[in-house]
Design a protein around this nucleic acid. Structure first.
Lengths: 235, 235
DNA sequence: TCTCGAATAATTGTATACAATAATACCACA
DNA sequence: TGTGGTATTATTGTATACAATTATTCGAGA
């Protein structure tokens, strides 16, 4: 089903609408556009070499994703997320990550468990070497594995959706030299709980893991992270 | 911001795209279309007296809402939700309703509290009279008040979103003569906890309230509710 | 100089035309 | 009778034309 079908994202990369959608989403999330900046259909179309039609359809999707706001007969405006939104998302995520860890404990496959162990092991190595980029990538992957392991496409989509919104903030956070290794230690704890089939513990640890991530982010200055991000370009 | 802006739903009722979107969503949720039924752009357009353009844009939105699946160059297909999906949604909702009750306890306004009290009081009356339709409407409204009272547009949108998905199932459930009054009793408990500023209790009660709703639904036969719904038409 | 308002321009909303792709029908051939 | 392949049709994807709405310019009048 559309919203909860992750594969859809692959297929529609090959249509113009899909390309426009993904391009604009990436640009918005990477901070290329200012908050409240107006997106003009023709301008975007010319920039990407397409007509207004696919641009308009992409706009309608971006609106439902919450990335732009369309005011009828007026225009489409980029909508950032406020600090309160980020906080709310992290609180919601902390609950859902806990639920996800619980379900993953019950449904994880041996293959997924293997990949999780490898992930934590590899991250330990990169942490010791100070490879922050690899560490961030492995961090993302760890969560994706858990999302898949929970065996609920509803919950999986929900969590990936939230992840999108906090991505630009979180990236900065993980680039923080302290948080990366600490985060991996927490992953290790969650992994051990899952291996031990202790769903209660896994839930509690995953829940706390999210709260820690948020508090670390706040401690390091959420607002600054935003500002720095804006001058970051896309990558 | 689009996705989390409820007012948007009002404004776009006045555009053709908006009308098509709402019409199709209502029809899908009310069971007018079979599961996996194909929606043809021209057919829908002719039926509603509009061209393909607004229909296509509405399709793109319905896809993100998860109500249809669009396969590129092939077509748009109605996607129902499975029983497992419903269960997952209820489990997720039970957590989020709990969080919502907690935040509502902290942020509810006197006006919202008044409306909540009135709601419960009125529902008690209709329950005693056996007015199931009014009871169902009041039940929906109780939750909406709480969503608004939690003062988080992220969580509010999230919960309203989920609510959409289980609407057709839940309607049948509440029409059940037993659940309606019982549900209202639970609302009363939540209300009292909020009034007493006991966030922990409110969270626990709201959480349990959702679990009870789900278990009642299962007990009364989720599958049958689905089937009956199909021959229900729109209302 | 300021304000109001009409003319003009810019932009979005919708319809239609054309292109590309997928589904179907139909016929030749074994 | 069954099968493979091609022609036809149907359907979606994209571009463009036109309509409706909103924004802007600019001049008249106070």
């Amino acid at each position: 089903m559309g919203k909860y079908d992750v594969k859809q994202e692959v297929t529609d990369k090959y249509s113009l609408r899909g390309r426009v959608f993904h391009k604009l989403r990436d640009d918005i999330l990477s901070g290329k556009y200012e908050d409240h900046e107006e997106l003009k259909e023709v301008a975007i179309g010319e920039e990407l070499g397409v007509s207004r039609t696919p641009v308009r359809e992409a706009f309608r999707q971006l609106e439902l994703e919450g990335l732009i706001q369309i005011i009828p007969n007026k225009g489409a405006y980029v909508t950032g997320i406020t600090e309160k939104d980020v906080k709310d998302i992290y609180m919601i995520r902390s609950l859902l990550e806990g639920l996800c860890a619980r379900w993953a404990t019950e449904h994880i496959t041996p293959e997924q468990l293997d990949e999780m162990e490898e992930n934590v092991y590899l991250a330990e190595f990169h942490a010791s070497k100070g490879h922050l980029d690899q560490l961030a990538a492995l961090d993302n992957r760890f969560h994706d594995i858990m999302y898949e392991a929970c065996d609920s496409k509803i919950l999986e989509h929900q969590l990936k959706d939230f992840h999108q919104y906090v991505l630009r903030v979180r990236k900065k956070t993980l680039s923080n030299a302290n948080r990366g290794p600490q985060s991996n230690m927490e992953h290790k704890g969650i992994l051990e709980a899952i291996k031990a089939k202790d769903a209660d513990l896994a839930e509690r640890l995953a829940h706390q893991h999210m709260i820690n991530a948020y508090e670390n982010m706040v401690k390091n200055g959420l607002h600054e992270a935003y500002e720095r991000e804006k001058n970051y370009g896309q990558n």
